[in-house]
């Protein structure tokens, strides 16, 4: 049984929790998801850069990048042949001279955390939990305080920069909405719809989790022990991710935190310490007037 953050947030009888399962082992790095996301959500351009990091010229998720395809080139020694694209003509015999490498690709996105720090710390209630269990910014309420930005343990959400009046929603925190508008109409989010290899799968989270477990078991049977799920475990520091992944290496290789924890987990402790400190200050102030001249 999948936890239901929508019910925890007060929705009565919410629909099943929706999410993404991004199976990076079949990603071909076409960036159709990035493009479809920009198009559907009318996300403004955020620069044309040459970053010199394989085929990744996007850089990172941010206010104007809600899907981000990462490219990692690794020496072949640790690699497993996944039948991914290679250098040379199809069917050509390998002459063994050049160094082989493997290419890891991952389409990254907001994780729609079960325990979402961005939502917890938002002081206006702009960030909210939808009936689908996703996390969405209400752009007409956000006042751009920026608190969600350092709160997110994945570095996803950001405040949009740009020229006021030219770029839309400048100064407002923005991120993936899991296509909240499309979900209302029973449609698949734009990125998953556009993905030609079903690397991005959309659906009911418990079903996705079962499918992902099957996939990873099959891969292990096929002799790919590096395959692992990331964010599929509800006992992790964020209560599991609404958008989780199948990875072929350690999370940090993909720029993901290896053991993310929602910062508000320690909040009761923080308030306690702050309360004690406040009392100490009050006591100190009383004491300094109580003694001597």
């Amino acid at each position: 049984m999948t936890s239901n953050p929508a019910r925890d947030a007060g929705w009565v009888d919410p629909p099943p929790r929706k999410g993404f399962f991004t199976d990076t082992s079949v990603c071909i790095g076409c960036k159709a998801c990035e493009v479809a996301c920009k198009e559907w959500n009318a996300v403004p351009d955020d620069g044309m850069n040459f970053l010199g990091s394989s085929y990744d010229n996007t850089g990172q998720l941010g206010a104007s990048t809600w899907r981000h395809v990462k490219f990692i080139e690794q020496p072949a020694s640790t690699a497993v042949d996944l039948g991914l694209p290679r250098v040379g003509l199809p069917g050509q015999q390998d002459t063994g001279e050049r160094t082989d490498f493997r290419w890891l690709m991952e389409s990254d996105v907001c994780k729609h955390c079960t325990h979402a720090a961005c939502l917890d710390v938002c002081p206006t209630g702009s960030l909210f939990r939808t009936e689908f269990g996703t996390v969405v910014v209400q752009e007409d309420i956000c006042n751009g305080c920026g608190y969600c930005v350092p709160a997110c343990p994945f570095g996803v959400i950001d405040r949009r920069i740009g020229e006021k009046g030219v770029t839309k929603n400048v100064g407002i925190a923005q991120k993936c909405t899991l296509c909240y508008d499309r979900l209302h109409d029973g449609l698949t989010p734009a990125c998953a719809q556009a993905c030609p290899t079903e690397s991005i799968q959309f659906g009911d989270l418990d079903e996705l989790r079962a499918r992902a477990q099957e996939r990873v078991d099959t891969m292990h049977d096929q002799g790919i022990p590096q395959a692992r799920l990331y964010g599929a475990d509800e006992s992790d520091g964020v209560g599991g991710l609404g958008a989780f992944f199948l990875l072929l290496d350690e999370p940090e290789v993909y720029g993901l935190p290896p053991d993310p924890v929602v910062t508000t987990k320690d909040l009761p402790e923080m308030w306690k310490k702050a309360g004690l400190a406040a009392l100490a200050l009050l006591a100190g102030a009383v004491a300094v007037f109580g003694s001597g001249s």
Binding site: V121, C142, G144, C145, A173
Partner: peptide, 22 residues
């Protein structure tokens, strides 16, 4: 320091113990 200073008052539409800024 707000991205939208004119919307400061939106801070006052909720009181959230989980948000130290609130």
């Amino acid at each position: 320091d707000l991205g939208r200073p004119e919307r400061f008052a939106n801070m006052l539409r909720v009181a959230k113990p989980s948000s130290p800024m609130s």
